[in-house]
Design a protein around this nucleic acid. Structure first.
Lengths: 192, 192
DNA sequence: ACTGTTATTGTACAACTGTATGATAACATA
DNA sequence: TATGTTATCATACAGTTGTACAATAACAGT
């Protein structure tokens, strides 16, 4: 059984490095296949043997980011927020949502691309589905409640809404700030 | 002063009709400039005189859809929901949100494209900003409350989250169904 | 080491892209 | 009606795209 063909490993590594380098200077949308292959020193035909477009490579990047999102959502949370120290008002926050904020902050450079204008919605939906899956696994033990699917999509996209606003403020707020915004928002909603 | 150059009007009309026709058979992503110009019987150079890519034409389409969204959000609401007749439990729904659902249903064919995978996020953000603006104008009289911007983005994207789920069920639910989903979702959130 | 499989390369091709140019026709205004 | 402006067209060009093919080299299993 083939575990890893060294030729493929080498080729993909070259492509990854090339894309990483090019992304430092130009937008994902502005990078074309020829340029990427030139930078990676691989034949263009080889690229098409593995991918269809430049975005597919970025998609593989983002898939690893999504893995981190899922891992950090599941693992025991050891981060002590300054908020939790200061006051107990925030104790009833869903403590897991803050991990999403941490994750986004960690991969800030990626989310600047994913949430930017004029990129494919594919990455957005990858993000959406990942968060939504986490929410579902988190709330139900065992069976999936079909009737709740609108609730999950509502909550998932609401959180992404906060992250979009975060992105638009150039990620200036801290993770704790984002948590405060979430709590305040939930307060506004439950009060109406 | 030039109000409308007949040449431009004619050209754009041809492009609009061509794009409309092509969209019946293929995805927006699969329509290229050459094909569009061939269908519209205009010179390719003329296209580039007005636009940069096929998506720009669709953007003009969607801008009109957005105008309808804003109009229908503002105009006095005359639609009597079966829900409002049946029960009074739903009287405290934000009555204006249902208009968004009506609008999406009305332009279902458009939102099938906007919300589909692998299209530009540009249209998503146009939709997002339109709804968000409406929410803001709706809640404040006069000055804009900067501190509430996360609340607006949260609520806006939450509603779009419902619409994404609606899209994924192929818009099978009725507008009233969507209203029920919204109310149920808000109930779940306020109960937690 | 041998053999069949497969990834990579170079090359080629028709089609599309984005831009530029000059000619022409439609436009606006005096 | 005459004149300057500008949208459209035809053409051209270098570069990209997606695909195809044969040759070659790297791989996996016997």
């Amino acid at each position: 059984m083939k575990v890893k063909d060294l030729r493929v490993v080498k080729t993909k590594k070259a492509i990854y490095q090339a894309l990483t380098k090019l992304l430092k200077d130009k937008l994902l949308t502005d990078i074309n296949v020829s340029e990427l292959c030139r930078e990676a020193s691989i034949n263009r035909g080889t690229f098409y043997f593995h991918y269809e477009e430049v975005g597919d490579v970025f998609k593989e990047f983002f898939e690893e980011v999504i893995v981190d999102l899922e891992e950090s959502y599941k693992e025991p949370y050891k981060y002590i927020s300054a908020l939790q120290v200061q006051t107990l008002d925030y104790k009833n926050i869903d403590p897991k949502t803050v991990r999403i904020f941490h994750h986004v902050k960690k991969y800030e450079d990626f989310y600047r691309i994913i949430l930017s204008d004029n990129v494919s919605t594919t990455y957005y939906y990858m993000f959406f589905d990942a968060i939504r899956s986490n929410f579902i696994e988190d709330s139900k033990i065992g069976e999936y409640d079909e009737s709740k699917k609108f609730v999950y999509s509502f909550m998932t996209n609401a959180i992404i809404g906060l992250i979009i606003e975060w992105y638009r403020t150039n990620f200036e707020e801290s993770v704790d700030d984002m948590n405060i915004h979430l709590v305040e928002t939930l307060n506004v909603i439950t009060r109406s």
